[in-house]
Each structure stands twice: as structure tokens, then as C-alpha cells.
């Protein structure tokens, strides 16, 4: 079956998935905003467009933990977060032709991730609203990403979705306000206000010892 995406080169090899991922990874580090990373991203995108799935596999490996971490802001379970991350990369694959290689890849990818995460959250909300989940027990508590938990658990528990995503783009991705605003679809002023309110909410919620501690 053909895959909707840029120039596919299907040789029908069932073991190709692992072989693609086993290709040597050109970067040891995954610098978030480094110029070198930007140009290598563009090169990988061009190769992926030409039908090189290995190049796209490298892009996925390079960004999977970042997309996964962002997806966790919109989901309750790790499984859901992985589903959102997978869906994000499939959307990226389908939209790769539209990417402008003169621009950095990460903000574009993260914008798609934000939209996918929002779609997922809206879908879950609709399911709850129309009663598809009536028979199920109450939603489980949010699974912590790490065994001893992080402040992001409080973020996920206390703040609305858009605020969580904006806060992650600022502190997890170190994006500037214009890029965050573009990703979440708000003005820069509104974005700064959202982040400021989030800091205030967390400040009021957490005591000073908790903030000082690890």
C-alpha cells in the first residue's frame, strides 16, 4: 500500500523499518537552536522529500523525545502521549513538501505537534461529552514522566491546555515569545500574559521549600 507522503521508495522489505533506524545517526547531540542543527535538518528534509525514508527516520529520532515531552502536556497517559507523537510525525511526513527549508525545522514541527495535541484533547473531550466513556471509570491521574515526579506534574494538574503547551515551549524548548505565539495561535502580548499568569498560579500553589527542593 502506498504511503501518502513525499516521493516514496518502497522496496517491499519488511525488515526495512529496523534497517532504516539502524542507519548511522549523523549527530551525537541534538542542539535545539544551533545553526548546524538547522542546516542538517534542512538537508534531511530535502532527502526525505526525495523519498529517502532513512533521512526522515533520522529526523524522527532527533526530535522524538521533544515531541513526546510536549505531547505529555496534552495527555494523561504515556500511551496517549506516544500516540500523539506518532500522529505528529505522520502529519509532518504528509506535509513535508510544504516546509520551507530556509526556515528552522523545530518550530514548524512543534507547531504541528501543538495542533495534534490540541486535536487529541478536543477529541477526548468530545468523547466524554457524548458519553462514550460513561462506562469507564474516572480518568486516571496523570502519570509522571519520572519516578519521583517533576514540577510539570503540577503544571499538568493545575493549568489549562494552551497554558501548559505555552509553558512547555518556553521552558522545555526555550522558544522566544513570537515563536510560542505562532505555535499556539495567540498574539505575543497574550502569550506573555498566559505565561505570566501560569508562573503566578504555580507560585501560589507551591510553597517556597518545594520550589527550592529538587
Amino acid at each position: 500500500m502506498a504511503v501518502a507522503g513525499p516521493g516514496r521508495n518502497d522496496n517491499g522489505d519488511p525488515n526495512r523499518v529496523t534497517s532504516v533506524l539502524a542507519q548511522p545517526f549523523s549527530l551525537v547531540e541534538t542542539p535545539r537552536t544551533a545553526e548546524r542543527g538547522v542546516t542538517e535538518d534542512a538537508a534531511l528534509v530535502r532527502r526525505a522529500r526525495a523519498g529517502d525514508e532513512g533521512a526522515f527516520g533520522q529526523l524522527v529520532r532527533r526530535y522524538e523525545n521533544r515531541v513526546l515531552a510536549l505531547s505529555r502536556r496534552a495527555t494523561r497517559t504515556r500511551q496517549d502521549a506516544e500516540d500523539v507523537a506518532q500522529e505528529t510525525f505522520l502529519r509532518v511526513w504528509r506535509a513535508l513538501e510544504r516546509f520551507d527549508t530556509a526556515r528552522p525545522f523545530a518550530p514548524w514541527l512543534l507547531t504541528i505537534a501543538v495542533r495534534t495535541a490540541r486535536s487529541h484533547a478536543a477529541r477526548e473531550h468530545r468523547k466524554r461529552m457524548i458519553g462514550l466513556k460513561l462506562a469507564e471509570p474516572a480518568p486516571p491521574p496523570i502519570e509522571p514522566a519520572t519516578a519521583d515526579g517533576t514540577i510539570w506534574e503540577e503544571v499538568d494538574r493545575l493549568l489549562p491546555l494552551t497554558t501548559r503547551l505555552a509553558l512547555w515551549l518556553k521552558h522545555g524548548e526555550k522558544l522566544a515569545s513570537p515563536a510560542i505565539a505562532a505555535a499556539i495561535g495567540k498574539s505575543e502580548t497574550a502569550t506573555r500574559a498566559i505565561i505570566s499568569r501560569a508562573h503566578r498560579t504555580l507560585r501560589e500553589s507551591l510553597d517556597k521549600e518545594a520550589l527550592d527542593g529538587t
Binding site: 500500500m1 502506498a2 504511503v3 501518502a4 507522503g5 518502497d10 526495512r16 523499518v17 529496523t18 532504516v20 533506524l21 525514508e53 526522515f56 527516520g57 524522527v60 529520532r61 522524538e64 523525545n65 521533544r66 515531541v67 513526546l68 515531552a69 505529555r72 504515556r78 502521549a81 506516544e82 507523537a85 506518532q86 510525525f89 505522520l90 511526513w93 504528509r94 514522566a145 519520572t146 517533576t150 510539570w152 522545555g172
Partner: peptide, 21 residues
């Protein structure tokens, strides 16, 4: 949080080859 890695890449490539897109 970023240190938490998953198996997204494998699943994505598998879904691409199955035509899941």
C-alpha cells in the same frame, strides 16, 4: 522530562510502511 525517551521512531516508520498515513 526530555530525558524520557520512547519508541516513537520505530512505531512511526512502521506505520509509514504499513501505509497508516
Amino acid at each position: 522530562e526530555l530525558a524520557d525517551t520512547g519508541s516513537v521512531a520505530l512505531a512511526v516508520m512502521s506505520r509509514m510502511q504499513r501505509g497508516a498515513a
